[in-house]
């Protein structure tokens, strides 16, 4: 998937209309696509993890606050960068947000230049890492399709174990190992052992 500044979407989640409206105008004015939501729930409803984006998130909101949304996104394995905006710079809350992976925590009323700068930084980082991230995602997606036994065989292969050694370790026959190996190669869509090892490295398994 080709990715550039135009394909990235900046999400604004704030229960206050004027904030959403003004931020939308501002961020659009520097050429980003903006989608705004009045609550965490409506955002989650529309959220697509395949879509590269950046989240501007208000901390204080009814029903589901910023921290709770951050948690929910983490549960969904989303790596979307989050910039918190909040009316009160509550240290415990902000530190919790940072620990959970927030990229910034900006106090309202904020310097719009700073916010835009942070958005730009995050977007560029996203553009840089997006292909690899996508690839990793793809590899992990394939990996989840492997059976338990196939994963064991996979781990042994990428660690340079021969069929014999693998069979001995797993206490199964050489033929069975070969069958598993063939399935692994097929499921991971790898044409050679080299490709498989590279995939394992990108996927963080090696």
């Amino acid at each position: 998937m080709e990715i550039n500044k135009q394909t990235v979407i900046i999400y604004v989640v704030d229960d206050e209309f004027s904030i959403r409206d003004s931020l939308t105008l501002l961020i659009e004015s520097v050429g980003y696509k903006v989608k705004s939501y009045d609550s965490a729930l409506t955002f989650l409803d529309k959220f697509d993890p395949e879509q590269p984006g950046c989240l501007i998130l208000d901390m204080r909101m009814p029903y589901m606050n910023g921290l709770e949304l951050q948690e929910e996104l983490a549960d969904r394995c989303s790596e979307i960068p989050i910039i918190f905006i909040s009316g009160d710079a509550d240290v415990p809350i902000s530190s919790k947000a940072f620990r959970s992976g927030a990229v910034d925590f900006i106090e309202k009323p904020f310097d719009n230049e700073l916010l835009l700068k942070r958005i730009n930084e995050e977007t560029e980082k996203l553009l840089r890492t997006w292909p690899e991230a996508q690839e990793r995602k793809q590899i992990l997606k394939l990996y989840t399709k492997l059976t338990e036994r196939e994963r064991e065989v996979f781990m042994l292969i990428i660690h340079n174990h021969s069929t014999k050694e693998a069979a001995k370790k797993l206490k199964i026959s050489n033929r069975t190992v070969d069958t598993h190996r063939a399935h692994v190669m097929e499921k991971m869509q790898a044409d050679s052992l080299n490709t498989l090892i590279i995939m394992a490295m990108i996927g963080g398994m090696l």
Binding site: S18, G87, K108, P109, D111
Partner: peptide
């Protein structure tokens, strides 16, 4: 803070 933030942004 809300209107102030909005003002700054607008």
């Amino acid at each position: 803070n809300q209107p102030l933030t909005a003002i700054a942004t607008y």
